[in-house]
């Protein structure tokens, strides 16, 4: 028990002080009355911020159902899910590739995966604009080859956002999978191949189970942060729709509605925690380790 305290304790204490306490403060803020200049009127309790999710005062001040915010939340979930799936499809073979290289290459590959991210998010997005725009790298190439005679609409749509988000989050998928696959014994795969006679079955019965913890970690590290992204949706998507990330940022900025921003953030937190707990309970029941 003492070891628990010394080993797990520091991380837990850090998170409790600098995450749990602040988030509890935000929970308290979410039920205060908003101050129109920003901030809150302390002590004036109200549930307005939470009602706002589904009710809205119409422009004429009558109360009615409104799904504006829910649709923003749903869209963000869809985009994050898409990002996660594509990252997995692109990331898994890469991680597998890395894990099967000779020892001296692996460390180098780990760095190579993250090297591009020493640059800035904004500049990376500008580079993508350059690649995807009407007379950009891709369209220019295709047109000079005569494959197409009119530029493909690659920029300012969901495709561009997906390309940009996947780009931003790929390392967070690749490296966890790599670190769980790296312990794989290639002889095991060979044996499995003999046993199951087929790559796909070997993949399913031997490699995937080994990679599973990494895949789960990767999906968490891609899906959840992608939910809060806002720079890429704006620059590559055209900023026509809000993502949950900018919606919340907007509440603390221009809209100056802190309680609503806090409520939105906590709502998201609750969704994610419920999903994670459900998953943990399910794997425990089915005998998995968690």
């Amino acid at each position: 028990m003492l070891a628990n305290i010394w080993l797990i304790g520091p991380a837990v204490v850090a998170i409790v002080i600098l995450m749990v306490i602040p988030l509890s403060m935000m929970a308290w803020i979410s039920i205060q009355a908003r101050s129109y200049g920003g901030g809150v009127h302390w002590g004036e309790l109200t549930g307005d911020a939470w009602l706002r999710f589904v009710f809205e005062r119409n422009l004429d001040d009558s109360l009615s159902w409104s799904f504006n915010y829910l649709s923003i939340i749903l869209r963000s979930f869809w985009l994050s899910a898409l990002t996660t799936v594509i990252s997995l499809i692109v990331g898994f073979p890469t991680a597998f590739f890395m894990a099967t290289r000779p020892l001296r290459w692996r460390t180098l590959l780990v760095f190579m995966v993250t090297l591009p991210f020493w640059t800035n998010l904004l500049v990376r997005n500008y580079a993508w604009i350059l690649i995807l725009r009407d007379h950009g790298t891709i369209n220019g190439l295709l047109m000079s080859l005569g494959v197409i005679d009119r530029p493909l609409p690659l920029l300012h749509n969901e495709f561009a956002v997906a390309v940009g988000l996947v780009y931003s989050f790929l390392p967070f998928m690749v490296l966890p999978i790599y670190s769980s696959l790296e312990k794989i014994d290639l002889r095991l795969v060979e044996a499995a191949f003999d046993l199951y006679s087929g790559r796909w079955r070997a993949l399913r019965h031997v490699i995937l189970p080994l990679a599973k913890p990494g895949i789960i970690a990767g999906c968490i590290l891609v899906f959840i942060p992608a939910l809060g992204s806002y720079v890429t949706p704006e620059l590559l998507g055209g900023g026509k729709t809000l993502m949950i990330g900018n919606l919340i940022g907007h509440q603390f900025g221009a809209a100056r509605n802190w309680p609503f921003g806090a409520a939105l953030g906590l709502f998201l937190l609750a969704l994610v925690l419920i999903a994670m707990t459900a998953y943990a309970l399910r794997t425990r029941r089915s005998g998995g380790t968690q």
Binding site: R57, L59, N68, T241, L242, L247, A255, R256
Partner: peptide
């Protein structure tokens, strides 16, 4: 405040 509130709701509707 009322005017700012309208403005903000218009913005959210525009972007949702």
């Amino acid at each position: 405040e009322k005017s700012r509130d309208l403005r903000e709701r218009v913005w959210t509707k525009l972007k949702s």
